[in-house]
């Protein structure tokens, strides 16, 4: 099946989906410009390549990735002797598809332990939306019939514990907290005991936001992870790095260091309903090898979706190919 056919079948299948709606702004701002660019240019020259480069950089895809991609385009144009700029559309989409979709073997489902409880740990820098994401995941899991407990592991930020408590009430999940300022590892320890007593299936553990370049805070996180692993075999079953879609290339640095300390199993990309392109997710996958598992597409509790790379690429390029 050719790329165009694939796109058409996707289009029929998914037109009404939230994904597409959520990413409307993203598409409108960048990738429509790709269309304009390729339609308005008839000849292919250095300037066009530089413009394409900038477009992708604007999506926060990372300079290295983009240079590599455009390098491929340059070679392709040369060997295939392409003269018409609009022909580049297919080449670009095909290349994105080849890179990110076809070799997709990564399972983006959340891993649950064979016997309860499962422990999910949420980590990330300050202000990315960890607490909100936890509430959304709780809702998702409860709809799948799981008994969920939210664990207030952010004992540092003022109001963080109550923020999670309010969410637990809204989604009707169990809630565990100690007093503000408690050692987060001990919160985890006690929460696991409590979860066993209450037959909880999944613990969703919040942690304080921390900048990845703060050594002692990262050590604290390492300890949290070790304590969880000691109390529940194979835990944490998911360690999700929450990344704000507006994050620039710093996202790579975040992913690299958090992965070193807590061995990430996936990324939750939040705030993708803005104008940010979330290209950093592609960069993280390509350079660190950690897949995006969840995306946040709005402020409401059910605005969380399992990430589907095909959907994402489709979301980015739908108009480019449709119009072509």
């Amino acid at each position: 099946m050719g790329i165009r056919d694939w796109f058409r079948s996707k289009k029929r299948k998914h037109q009404a989906q939230k994904y597409r709606i959520g990413m409307e702004k993203t598409r409108a701002s960048v990738f429509n410009r790709l269309n304009d660019l390729l339609d308005s240019n008839t000849s292919i020259d250095d300037e066009l390549f530089e413009d394409i480069e900038e477009l992708f950089i604007m999506a926060d895809m990372g300079v290295d990735t983009v240079l590599d991609l455009v390098g491929h385009l340059r070679r392709h144009v040369k060997t295939k002797n392409i003269k018409d700029a609009s022909q580049l559309k297919d080449v670009i989409v095909e290349e994105m598809f080849r890179r990110y979709v076809r070799d997709e073997i990564v399972d983006t489902n959340l891993t649950l332990a064979e016997s309860a409880p499962s422990v999910f740990l949420f980590v990330g820098v300050n202000g990315v939306g960890k607490t909100t994401t936890i509430a959304k995941v709780a809702k998702l899991l409860q709809e799948e019939g799981k008994r969920v407990m939210l664990v207030a592991g952010d004992t540092y930020r003022a109001g963080a514990i109550n923020q999670l408590r309010v969410w637990s009430e809204r989604v009707g999940a169990e809630f565990f907290a100690k007093t503000a300022g408690s050692d987060p590892s001990s919160v985890m320890f006690d929460a696991i005991e409590e979860a066993r007593r209450q037959d909880v299936d999944v613990l969703l553990c919040d942690t304080a936001g921390r900048l990845h370049n703060k050594k002692n805070l990262m050590q604290e996180l390492g300890k949290i992870r070790r304590v969880i692993g000691r109390e529940v075999g194979g835990a944490p079953h998911e360690t999700l790095l929450v990344v704000d879609a507006t994050t620039g290339q710093n996202g790579l640095s975040q992913a690299r260091i958090f992965n070193d300390v807590t061995k990430l199993t996936g990324v939750a990309l939040t705030k993708l309903d803005g104008t940010a392109k979330g290209g950093i997710a592609l960069a993280i996958r390509e350079t660190i090898g950690v897949p995006v598992k969840l995306v946040g597409l709005g402020e409401k509790l059910d605005d969380l979706e399992y990430f589907d790379i095909e959907e994402y690429i489709y979301g980015l390029f739908a108009d480019v190919v449709d119009d072509g």
């Binding site: 604007m58 926060d60 820098v125 202000g127 507006t246 620039g248 996202g251 104008t275 940010a276 392109k277």
Partner: peptide, 12 residues
């Protein structure tokens, strides 16, 4: 504004 913001900073 978060100093780690990417290209979107301008639009924000």
């Amino acid at each position: 504004l978060d100093a780690m913001t990417g290209q979107d900073a301008v639009s924000v």
